[in-house]
Simulated scan of single mutants.
Amino acid sequence: MRLLRHRPAPPARPAPGEVLAEAVRLRVRLGGREVLRGVDVVVRAGEVLALVGPNGAGKSTLLAALAADLAPAEGVVRVHGRSAVEWTAPELALRRAVLPQAAALSFPFLVEDVVRMGRAPHASSPAEDDLAVAAAMEATEVSAFAGRPFSALSGGERARVALARVLAQRAPLLLLDEPTAALDLKHQELVLRVCRERAREGDAVVVVLHDLGLAAAYAHRVAILHGGAVAADGAPGEVFGERLLSDVYDQAVEVLPHPRTGALLVTPKRNL
């Protein structure tokens, strides 16, 4: 019989549109450099918010600040309506789940064990944990190698296992840093479909993306970061303009409708 340690209770399911995280006049300095300069952003239940922008724009820094993993120099970050610093670590773990860019482990854990780590914040029964772990592995298509060592996987397989761990945590706020970076075409689409499904079920998802096409297709809202500030924030169809994107990325960009579906397409202009 397993003895359950006293742990805080999970939060109630959020209402549609409820603000689960926000940054207000956020300034962050790293190594003497101001990485974020007065950023305001709101994350709501039921939506996928994509953070896009060129390298060094501050996307990962903003994600880390929203996760309460990085202290701001100025401004405030709120998680579930309270200042992030007011939550204990166990309370935060029940409210937000974080996927970092790199997925590394020092010990030869099996895949299923890695995914099960996502259940650590919960004082749930083994049966509940088993269901959550199985559902997360199925959603990310890693069930077939549940018994393999994590260290024996390819980079893309590790990325999907790391995402499964985050899903198994079942926090209502998901913060994902470049979850598609190591993935092939099929699994990039899979990950973004999972993000949409979590939003459809009422969670809030913040995802850092470099692929503007994926952001246009799957995000309900996009925040374009440039030079540590938010250059635009809104639905992809509202903020993905050729002039703005070309200026932000210092690269000529075309934004046009798909010839068959009318969906928004974003591509660099090329002279081959």
Rank of each mutant, 00 (worst) to 15 (best):
A223M: 03
A223Y: 00
A223I: 02
A223C: 04
A223Q: 04
A223E: 06
A223F: 01
A223K: 03
A223W: 01
I224Y: 02
I224K: 03
I224E: 03
L225H: 08
L225D: 07
H226D: 14
H226T: 05
G227K: 10
G227H: 13
G227Y: 11
G228D: 07
G228F: 09
G228M: 05
A229K: 07
A229T: 08
A229I: 01
A229R: 15
A229S: 09
V230D: 02
V230M: 10
A231W: 00
A231D: 02
A231S: 01
A232I: 12
A232C: 04
A232Y: 11
A232W: 11
D233A: 09
D233R: 10
D233I: 09
G234F: 11
G234T: 13
G234N: 07
G234L: 13
G234V: 07
A235F: 05
A235G: 14
A235W: 15
A235D: 12
P236L: 04
P236F: 05
P236V: 07
P236S: 06
G237N: 04
G237Y: 05
G237M: 06
E238G: 10
E238S: 13
E238C: 08
E238T: 10
V239N: 10
V239Q: 07
V239Y: 14
V239E: 04
F240M: 07
F240H: 05
F240V: 03
F240K: 00
F240T: 00
G241F: 06
E242A: 12
E242D: 02
E242G: 10
E242S: 12
E242R: 08
E242Q: 15
R243D: 15
R243A: 15
L244I: 01
L245P: 08
L245I: 01
L245H: 02
L245G: 00
L245V: 02
L245E: 02
S246I: 01
S246M: 03
D247V: 03
D247E: 14
D247R: 15
D247G: 03
V248S: 12
V248T: 10
V248I: 15
V248M: 11
V248E: 15
V248D: 09
Y249T: 12
Y249H: 14
D250C: 13
D250F: 01
D250N: 14
D250V: 12
D250Q: 14
D250M: 00
D250W: 04
Q251G: 07
Q251M: 13
Q251P: 09
Q251L: 15
Q251C: 13
Q251N: 14
Q251A: 12
A252W: 04
A252N: 09
A252V: 13
A252D: 15
A252K: 13
A252Y: 05
V253D: 02
V253C: 00
E254Q: 13
E254H: 14
E254S: 11
E254A: 13
E254P: 04
E254T: 09
E254G: 08
E254N: 10
V255A: 10
V255H: 08
V255F: 10
L256M: 11
L256K: 08
P257H: 06
P257T: 12
P257F: 05
P257C: 09
P257I: 08
P257L: 07
P257N: 10
P257A: 04
H258G: 03
H258I: 07
H258Q: 09
H258S: 06
H258E: 06
